[in-house]
Design a protein around this nucleic acid. Structure first.
Lengths: 152, 152
DNA sequence: TGGCAAATGAAAACCGTTTTCACTACTAAA
DNA sequence: TTTAGTAGTGAAAACGGTTTTCATTTGCCA
């Protein structure tokens, strides 16, 4: 249920794209079988290497936007300038451990924030609609790979 | 303690900027008296409207990078394409309620994640170094401003 | 089957951020 | 105090992910 603003001016999303277009289906397929977070470009190259006439990058972006709107996909932003996406399994909601070195990410098995929302709502009169929680650090391998000396 | 990757390749930050330069001081002053999150451009225009020879945008960016490195400022990314910054009061760590309509943000008075870090560390063998938690929704005013009809 | 709205792709525009490079301001040594 | 040498700065260009534009194609349906 993470919320994702858009770069530019985000015109309220008109008629189009409320249906699952052909391109969007292909994008969703890629995300369906990918366990890690994927950027638009990741998805685009995945498709290009397996389809004979893959959707263009533009279509991938547009599809992702629709899929997010449809609630089938969630966008995550680590602040490194590249947005990542992943499938949302219905009723599932979770966060990630993101390794700062190798950038791999692991799902946390449940949402840590849900219980807090109610009290925030009461205390701040703030209507909670979504949240981003990402935890950064070092995965096990990268901890080991970092020799005591190199521990910048 | 939010973590902030950089856009490009982030050359490990050489000698320079480990001291508080003149430009950085001005940037810090702006953040010091601002209670909301500010983007680089915000800071730049603030300075331009009050100094006779204000630091350029480049310097603002460079200063912010240094200040983050020095731990005096933290960067926050909502995924709308614009990074925001705020002063870090020593020992303080908190998160924000961000209104999706008017984009104002309010501090939560404490960190909601700290208690979790230890158990994450144990369970996932993941060395936690930082996290991002931002909660999105509607502030009180914007809730009211949204007439039942206009509730897109 | 003809007409239209939606979908698509290529290329251009965007825009926040970073890099480059020439120049200036400090600072420390002589 | 002059003289390096180093760090800081600004303007402009480069970058790169994302969005827009616009001409074309696709697919639905009356």
């Amino acid at each position: 249920m993470s919320v994702q603003g858009s770069h530019g001016h985000s015109h309220s999303k008109s008629p189009q794209s409320l249906r699952l277009t052909k391109g969007a289906k292909k994008v969703l397929e890629v995300l369906e079988r990918t366990d890690e977070l994927s950027s638009a470009q990741d998805i685009h190259s995945a498709l290009r290497s397996e389809e004979d006439s893959p959707p263009g990058l533009t279509t991938v972006y547009r599809s992702l936007e629709s899929l997010v709107q449809l609630g089938l996909v969630q966008a995550v932003d680590f602040g490194d300038g590249e947005r990542r996406y992943e499938m949302v399994k219905p009723g599932e909601h979770h966060h990630h451990l993101v390794c700062e070195v190798c950038r791999t990410s692991v799902h946390l098995d449940q949402c840590l924030v849900q219980q807090l929302e109610e009290s925030i709502q009461a205390k701040y009169k703030f209507e909670v609609r979504g949240h981003i929680l990402e935890i950064f650090g070092l995965c096990e391998q990268c901890q080991q790979a970092m020799t005591p000396a190199g521990k910048k």
